[in-house]
Write a protein that binds this DNA or RNA. Structure first.
Lengths: 215, 215
DNA sequence: GCGTCCATTAAACATCCGTTTGAAACAAGC
DNA sequence: GCTTGTTTCAAACGGATGTTTAATGGACGC
């Protein structure tokens, strides 16, 4: 039945996100799903295709999509919105639904499912961020530099998911709690990033930036 | 003999760093090392103790230590030096010695050996960075905020190691090459970070920062 | 009732894993 | 030469893995 398929994807997603592809066994999946070991072969062919389906399901049901912002939003407001949304995804809970964790795991150690995920889902997000970064910089800044700066913005957000354990060890549980509230971290990262971008803008802008100049 | 021990550690380190603990088999290690499968049991007891020895060996031969800077260095110069050193570690080669990669892997998915590694090596480095960040900010900025800002600096450096494959996919091989030269990335991250910190400093500084002011 | 198709099942399959065995090779001391 | 201790070796162990088989159950059309 189709219910078995869904149950398998759901269960496998949880376990894959918790333990990774290699360390999750088909018997473990089937036991938790209450199905027979052969059901995976029957519905998906093999373990790897089940994994791919789980990843697909993950970012279909948790689609962090480029968000449409208010009409007259200024570039800084747009950046703030993007960062806030990212931090919401990164911190939405310690162990929320498994969807985010599975995607993050896939992005950190890419397998076969990775490229599709990037093309389908990360590319648009990054393009949107790059667009906003561009609005905050003079046109003289080359594309590759703008991409690097966009990386700097993304990096700050990713840290709080990928290096949670280290962060805890470094600053202590108490401080780490304070650092990982969505509102506070989004505010801090936004301010830091706007400052960084402005710094680049004013350096470059001395030559070619200000609106209404020579051409 | 002792040469076998060393050969095993060296080989195992390379493979562990490339594929992780689970995905590396003892047979693979021994084949590459040109030894018998039983040699691991004989010299180390089991696979896990060989792994621990490899991690130890890794950060004994690649000790990222706080660097002593020139005497009269300004805080921005100190920050630049720290970031440059970090990027040197992150980018020193695509596949250099396996030491860094193994440590990074350990930090991303901590095992029991992780806390010791943090306490012994990461803590001093982070403390040094926090110290420099503090010098760049007014004293009114609370500790937890300074820690968060230090995270923002570190995060930018870590991105280029942990998300290399995604970065490649996003901006293309050509641009990614340009973004991952040590000098260029260190310059970009330093400028961005100094701007971000300055932004925080001037906001806070309106009350208490500038040297030689009211209070 | 009967045949057909889909879904599920228990059992077995072949392979790989980390580990262990027992003997062989080797060097050093006496 | 013989013993002793250390190191290496081929082979096998017990168990876990992903996968496959062949049989069973049930729903539906006729």
């Amino acid at each position: 039945m189709d219910a078995t398929r869904q149950k398998l994807i759901e269960t496998a997603g949880q376990l894959f996100s918790r333990d990774g592809f290699e360390s999750t066994t088909v018997r473990e999946i089937c036991q938790h799903a209450g199905t027979n070991v052969a059901s995976i072969h029957y519905h998906f062919g093999d373990k790897e295709r089940l994994y791919i389906e789980a990843v697909k399901h993950a970012h279909c049901h948790q689609p962090p999509s480029p968000q449409p912002w208010a009409e007259g939003a200024t570039p800084p407001q747009k950046l703030a919105a993007i960062i806030h949304q990212m931090m919401t995804v990164m911190l939405d809970a310690e162990t929320p639904s498994w969807h985010t964790e599975l995607m993050m795991r896939e992005l950190a150690r890419p397998t076969s499912a990775c490229e599709a995920l990037v093309r389908e889902f990360i590319d648009p997000l990054f393009a949107q961020l790059l667009c906003v970064v561009t609005e905050l910089l003079p046109p003289s800044v080359p594309l590759v530099e703008r991409q690097g700066l966009a990386f700097s913005v993304v990096a700050q957000c990713l840290l709080y998911r990928y290096h949670r354990p280290i962060g805890r060890l470094l600053v202590g549980e108490n401080h780490f709690q304070q650092l990982t509230t969505i509102e506070e971290s989004a505010r801090r990262i936004t301010e830091f990033s706007l400052g960084g971008l402005q710094s680049v803008a004013t350096r470059e802008g001395a030559v070619a930036s200000k609106p209404g100049e020579s051409s």
